[in-house]
Design a protein around this nucleic acid. Structure first.
Lengths: 233, 233
DNA sequence: ACCTGAACACCGTTCAAGT
DNA sequence: ACCTGAACACCGTTCAAGT
């Protein structure tokens, strides 16, 4: 018993919502969305599956909390100093989300789902608030603000999610395989499509290889920003 | 036995991939994504769960096939006559997808997932092909075609999916409840957020009520089209 | 070749019982 | 108040056995 007196390492501290959500994020990062299980999670927390339900209502709420935490971190990282312009601020927010989704591939899927399915769940208001302020600062008229916010947000989440999946899927084909090998496989499939039905995709497939890195992602953001300027300003 | 001689109604014809996929679409429409189960599906087809695996590899492939079928129907519906201009054609494709996702709420989720996760699965090439042709016709330079395609596609799928969920969720709060009552609930939650942290969302929440119908959806498409024109043409 | 249906290895969630 | 862990009602998938 003497060896156990002072050592608040990480075993005996009581369960809490924060510890549970933190462990869930770790599990999602390490094992993906399929790896987040109440059994695996309770094992990691050295408790029983039922214990988690004392602090969290169900799996949806747990995923929403994990997503909200990850988004808070992503948006806090990009909040350094006063931005030069609303355009620059929007690009910074977009890149912050891009990098966060790159680091946590499950985050792309969860954000896209929560944005439309449960817009009261913290992650959604956080993102809409940050982009909304800049859209307003840009001078977009009131009745069109959500249109422009959603044009930005759905592109950001979709494109960032795709980038993250491309990089994660590459590792699953064969551990350590490069992203380009995964994209090569997609390109090969596209080039095998019926040339009568899919002339464009077949001809353009090769372009995909260079597509989804940070600079291409930002080019898409700039297209939407240019559209906002041209239509509303 | 005399009553059973000639009546190819729908009981005794053999299982086939097409019948299975058709029944899956029906089940998804009626019971949602959670309702699509190999047990429920095999019951509807008057067979055992194992029989389905003779024609379909697994649930992912079944969902991909159902999604591909629904997209084919959506894109065929909008293919009447030669379009006036690439812009008009893109708007028509967008509206076709919007209406299809409105009619099949599960389609929004599945398309967004397949677009980034399994881009070889028929639904993705179909959509990229149709939009890609118009982007090329517009005169977007080769190296930027996928950037503009994805800006359009991710907005279309995200915004259409949100519209569909809003309408479907309304019915789940209480059967027959209007879409606006669901949005009112979201607005109420947003207006209860901390005013220090969420000034924009709180102030703008009311705008949401008028947001996501067809004309607002199209306004978003026009923003992106204007951006494409302004940046690349 | 195609179908059957029991069985396997999981899930999320509940809940009586403990402390 | 908080935790335990067996039990319940499901899943997707497999596979020996049938036709």
């Amino acid at each position: 018993m003497a060896t156990r007196t002072r050592r608040p390492e990480r075993r005996e501290e009581p369960l809490s919502r924060e510890r549970i959500v933190g462990a869930a994020v770790e599990l999602l990062d390490q094992a993906g969305e399929a790896g987040l299980t109440f059994r695996a999670l309770s094992e990691r927390l050295a408790t029983g599956p039922g214990a988690i339900y004392w602090h969290v209502a169900n799996k949806d709420e747990l995923l929403a909390a994990a997503t909200g935490d990850a988004v808070s971190a992503a948006l806090a990282a990009g909040a350094a100093g006063p931005p030069d312009s609303p355009d620059a601020a929007i690009r910074a927010i977009a890149l912050g989300l891009f990098d966060a989704i790159d680091a946590h591939p499950w985050l792309g899927t969860q954000l896209a789902l929560q944005m439309s399915r449960s817009p009261w769940q913290s992650a959604t208001p956080q993102i809409l608030e940050r982009i909304g302020r800049q859209v307003r600062a840009l001078g977009v008229p009131e009745g069109s603000q959500f249109t422009t916010i959603f044009a930005l947000v759905y592109y950001i989440l979709g494109a960032a999610g795709q980038n993250a999946v491309n990089r994660a899927s590459a590792g699953m084909l064969r551990p350590g395989v490069a992203r380009n090998e995964y994209l090569d496989a997609v390109v090969t499939q596209w080039e095998a499509l019926d040339p009568e039905e899919y002339p464009f995709i077949r001809a353009a497939a090769g372009q995909l290889r260079e597509h989804d890195d940070r600079s291409e992602f930002l080019a898409g953001v700039d297209v939407i920003l240019a559209g906002i300027t041209s239509v509303y300003l």
